[in-house]
Amino acid sequence: MNILLVDDELELVSALAERLSFRGFEADWVTSGAEAMDKILEKDYVLAILDVKMPRMSGLELRKRLEHLRPGLKYIFLSGHGSEDDYKVGAAKADSYLVKPVKIEDLVERINLALGN
């Protein structure tokens, strides 16, 4: 199952993707919303893990755009602080919402839940 991770912190998103690949997921990563919109068309992604706060295009804005490009895609949001505002604005509608730093076991559990595994 293909997963796309999007976070503007390159070291974070690349390490997270590698750790997920060790756990049996096909995880690709990009560092911006613009890249994500191109990448999402390359494979049959089933889940996107998005950072809430990114420059240029926030995770919440990106989700709106991805919904048009890939209907039915599941979402998990990662946030630095888990502010209530972020949650109200849209992350609440996501399949899951985690606050950084995340425990890989928690993330794997949320991915499995979102994918109905």
Partner: peptide, 21 residues
């Protein structure tokens, strides 16, 4: 500042996790 520090901690967390893996 707290957002910046959180990001740093999150990166260290993943790099250390990768070392562990």
């Amino acid at each position: 500042i707290s957002h910046d520090v959180k990001n740093v901690l999150a990166i260290i967390n993943e790099e250390a996790g990768l070392l562990q893996d």
